[in-house]
């Protein structure tokens, strides 16, 4: 996993509530057995005017000029600004894979769906919850000023606007530690292998039917 420390990133505003993971990456792209290459199909049905299928040359497809990701001013954005309940629906990790592959490292919203939120941390993508009024302010500032970028600082848990206004955000110590170090979570967990074995042995004795 890519480590995350600090970022000064261009912001792209996606002004919709309840953006679901089917919209983030439609089902036909889930047939891939790989973990990479989903970026060009991020928001496929909103982003292109035709119907996308795996294997198409996406550079030749007609872009939807009304979709915010296609506005030239947001090209290269690394911070996605969104509304409440972002990432609801399917548990597909292809959603954070597609966001990350497209170049996003941070998503800011008033709330996230639980599974998506959790999946982000496994992929070096930082989801940041901010109060609705702060998100409103960021939408206004971002839409008003071309080139609007936010400074995201994980060690101090703050985001800072171009005018110098800072907002704090929460993250659990465990997730922060893993993101800062870009750590392999499985490797960390296996440091507790003896504890897992002991728990399992005790469970096998107490509830043998679970080990048929």
């Amino acid at each position: 996993m890519k480590a995350f420390t600090t970022l000064n990133g261009l912001v792209c505003p996606l002004d919709r509530a309840n953006v679901d993971t089917d919209a983030i990456i439609p089902k036909q792209f889930l047939k891939s057995i790989k973990r990479s290459g989903f970026g060009p199909n991020l928001f496929d049905e909103w982003r292109y005017l035709d119907h996308g299928e795996p294997g198409m040359d996406n550079s030749q497809r007609p872009l939807n000029p009304d979709f915010v990701l296609n506005f030239p001013r947001y090209a290269g954005a690394q911070v996605l600004l969104a509304r409440e309940n972002f990432g609801c629906g399917s548990s597909r990790e292809h959603a954070p894979w597609a966001l990350e592959d497209q170049g996003f490292r941070v998503v800011i919203a008033p709330s996230f769906a639980d599974i998506f939120f959790n999946n982000c941390y496994k992929n070096g993508l930082l989801p940041i919850v901010q109060p609705a009024e702060v998100v409103d302010q960021l939408f206004r500032e971002c839409e008003a000023a071309e080139g609007y970028a936010l400074n995201v600082d994980l060690p101090s848990q703050t985001i800072t606007t171009p005018s110098g206004q800072s907002f704090a955000f929460d993250i659990t110590e465990h997730r922060k530690h893993c993101l800062l170090g870009g750590l392999d979570e499985i490797g960390l967990t296996l440091q507790h292998a003896e504890k897992i074995k002991a728990y399992e042995a005790q469970r096998r004795a107490a509830q043998p039917w679970l080990f048929a």
């Binding site: 599974i115 999946n119 296996l190």
Partner: peptide
């Protein structure tokens, strides 16, 4: 509950999930 693919791998390798 549902989990993402990284967690699928984590459960396969460790029989546990990191959870809150």
């Amino acid at each position: 509950h549902g989990i993402g693919t990284s967690e699928v791998e984590h459960v396969m390798a460790t029989q546990t999930l990191v959870a809150k």
